[in-house]
């Protein structure tokens, strides 16, 4: 396997899932996993199995809902949809995330320029 792949940062999988669902609409588990891998430019080593507990947690929080449906290849799959609560949560988390990264960025700049 590619040696420079990164593990999913703790706590970010949920955010990735709801962002994916927001961008692409209702999807089943395998497609969500594939999209996350593709969007990360295959830079992310996602154990696809870990996706399912994350999906369950999101459902418990009420941010996504699911129902049984059929995949393009005709298999019985569970299809996940973003709820309106999930959409709000996404906005909140995006904002938080951006603030956090901008702070970290600033720190990194300091350390790059020791004066």
């Amino acid at each position: 396997m590619t040696p420079d792949k990164h593990d999913v940062l703790y706590g970010t999988l949920g955010l990735m899932v709801i962002k994916t669902l927001e961008a692409l609409g209702p999807l089943h588990g395998y497609l969500i996993a594939r999209r996350i891998e593709q969007i990360s430019g295959n830079q992310l080593s996602l154990n696809q199995g870990t996706l399912y507990p994350a999906l369950l947690k999101l459902q418990q929080s009420g941010w996504i809902s699911s129902k049984w449906g059929t995949s393009e290849s005709g298999r019985r799959v569970r299809i996940y949809t973003l709820t309106s609560a999930g959409r709000k949560q996404l906005q909140k988390e995006e904002a938080q995330w951006q603030r956090a990264t901008s702070i970290v960025e600033r720190f990194l700049k300091i350390s790059e320029n020791p004066s």
Partner: peptide, 14 residues
């Protein structure tokens, strides 16, 4: 169990 089975089948197809 069903969901994982479907997942693996989809992935195999791909």
């Amino acid at each position: 169990d069903d969901e994982i089975t479907s997942h693996l089948a989809e992935a195999t197809d791909a």
